[in-house]
Design a protein around this nucleic acid. Structure first.
Lengths: 339, 339
DNA sequence: GAATAAAATGCAATCGATTGTAATAAATAA
DNA sequence: TTATTTATTACAATCGATTGCATTTTATTC
């Protein structure tokens, strides 16, 4: 047997009061006598009353929902970010509406509309790799809804974002590999439309230049950074006779290293290798993988806190300067040449 | 400058029509002339009209939102499940409201209320480890909202659920290790309030019994299955002089194996080891980890499809028999003794 | 006890979209 | 041309909670 949800009208009828009194009583408004407040709250409890969020949102013209749009949900890094966001947001009494663009702008555009339709109080976005411009966020921003980008952020315009310094991190990794004696370093990275991968490549180039090593486009392998891509890349690396590899994420780096070992290469003696993210896997592979610490959980928390602050204080989020997280290089066995 | 969202009243005023005509015209209701339909849709587009979801939900007394409650968002397995759910649900025009219980019933209870407050059309749940009974789902179920459990499901009562046969999987793993010559097998597992870990242990015991191996509570290590727990467990395993290890998840198994190797143990010569889940990590560690294939993505898809079918057809979900996914044993180098 | 102040409660409009029914306009038949 | 049917469009109530203002009840003062 299905019974309908209880409304303030049901409570009002039961207590012989006006709905408005119930509404005020439930939130302990001072204009309702204390005795009545207690009666209202008690019977509301008894009847199993739960406020209808839509009615509230409709009337108040705003929600307690935060939207998230990410390229892909199924990655360890992203699950960390989302867990961080959920913790903060939930604590503040907000709920989370989540969607993935599957690395496709057209779906991203639809997702933004859905978020708008649901009148989210704020939006956290990590862009799809083929998102070239961000005009699809214009309408939602014009409504005064703060939009905060993280990780994969828009290029050019200065929209508020939380990122790491990918260029500097790429530089640090490459420099380290060079210092360990690598002369021919292959860089495995992702779609160059994405700021993240473009900047890491830029850092890689800067380090090469600084140490007067030639830059060769052949040494830059662009793929989807998947497990399989790492295996394929390993074979290219051997053909290229490289002695160093800088991979733009740990999963791909781990599978690449695995394949290199199976092909008879010694790590780090023959080839030094480094990844990116400090995923769990980087600590467990053998040898442990040198990587860049990219704290997803903290990034999620920071992004959420920032967004909530803007919602609460009604400060225009576009006035915020970008936030850049520190990303220390974690040197492990995969890149340290025994002397 | 912030401009307010456009409503059907705005469109009505502009076109000198009644709001009801706009409402019908937008969905191409046959009672609105074709010419008017076009005019309405065109100006709606021009004015940037987007329907207010709350008004619709309030009026229709239902939503297009699916709720998810999971113990923890930050695990690779769960991110796979959620990605699977998101794909199906989004395709069907639904949105996803996500929350985590952080393995705590009290938060789970609050999350269920929030889901109810948001009048989700259906709810997908994986229980917190300390959830002993499920009465907090009663109210939402009484409202006719289908609740479907997955992975961590309630014990005892026959609520609809999608699971794997954990007992059988645990049995298969243990049997395999025994067949590889292991005589003293340690089982590392999680909180025994959770069906998942309890049943895997049961399977482990059944296999021991079948092969007339003694069951010793000392050999069952219960912890949080974390990376650190794996390291700690490795030392216990050495003390216990075990020659086989069955770990209830791959992450923990990988870190345990890593530590065992560092302590001088040869895998699989000295100790055979198997994990659970078929996470990416199981394929990359050296030696590759024997494990049970637990397809999170597919489970998510299946759960979502099932739930949507029940919402669409308005069939009482409690009439469904439980769905049990197949979980093949993937035998890899970590458990195969060279002859 | 009447007048006034203060406290408590009620009325009614509002948020934006939906939908049964009434009203009007257009088309057809007589 | 008038009557009748059919195609369009408008009206108004509804979903559930909120809130400014009016009204009623209670407390205080003279």
């Amino acid at each position: 047997m299905i019974n309908k949800p209880v409304t303030i009208y049901d409570i009002a009828k039961k207590l012989n009061l006006a709905p408005s009194t119930i509404s005020r009583g439930l939130k302990r408004h001072s204009s309702v006598s204390h005795r009545t407040q207690e009666r209202i709250i008690k019977t509301a409890e008894e009847m199993g009353y739960r406020a209808n969020t839509f009615a509230i949102n409709l009337r108040n013209r705003k929600t307690s929902t935060i939207g998230i749009i990410v390229p892909k949900l199924n990655s360890y890094f992203m699950s960390q970010v989302i867990a961080g966001i959920e913790g903060v947001v939930n604590n503040a009494g907000y709920t989370l509406l989540i969607s993935q663009s599957l690395e496709d702008v057209s779906k991203e555009i639809i997702n933004v509309q859905t978020m708008f339709d649901n009148r989210v109080a704020g939006l956290l976005v990590s862009l799809a790799e083929n998102t070239k411009e961000t005009s699809h966020f214009n309408r939602i921003q014009k409504q005064g809804i703060p939009v905060l980008f993280f990780d994969r952020t828009p290029m050019g315009n200065d929209l508020p974002a939380i990122t790491i310094n990918n260029e500097s991190a790429g530089y640090k990794v490459t420099k380290h590999l060079i210092e360990q004696g690598a002369k021919r370093i292959v860089h495995i990275t992702g779609n160059q439309l994405s700021n993240v991968y473009r900047e890491r490549l830029a850092g890689y180039r800067r380090a090469l230049q600084e140490f007067k090593l030639p830059f060769d486009t052949q040494n830059v392998l662009i793929n989807d950074l998947s497990e399989q891509a790492g295996i394929d890349a390993a074979h290219s690396i051997i053909k290229l006779m490289a002695d160093g590899v800088f991979v733009a994420n740990d999963h791909c780096a781990a599978s690449c290293m695995h394949e290199l070992k199976h092909s008879g290469k010694k790590i780090p003696e023959d080839i030094v290798i480094a990844g990116f993210n400090n995923d769990m896997i980087s600590r467990i592979v053998d040898p442990a993988l040198t990587t860049v610490d990219y704290p997803g959980f903290q990034m999620g928390e920071l992004a959420a806190k920032n967004l909530l602050a803007h919602i609460a204080e009604r400060i225009d989020i576009n006035l915020t300067s970008n936030i850049i997280l520190k990303t220390p290089l974690l040197i492990r066995a995969s890149s340290v040449r025994k002397i």
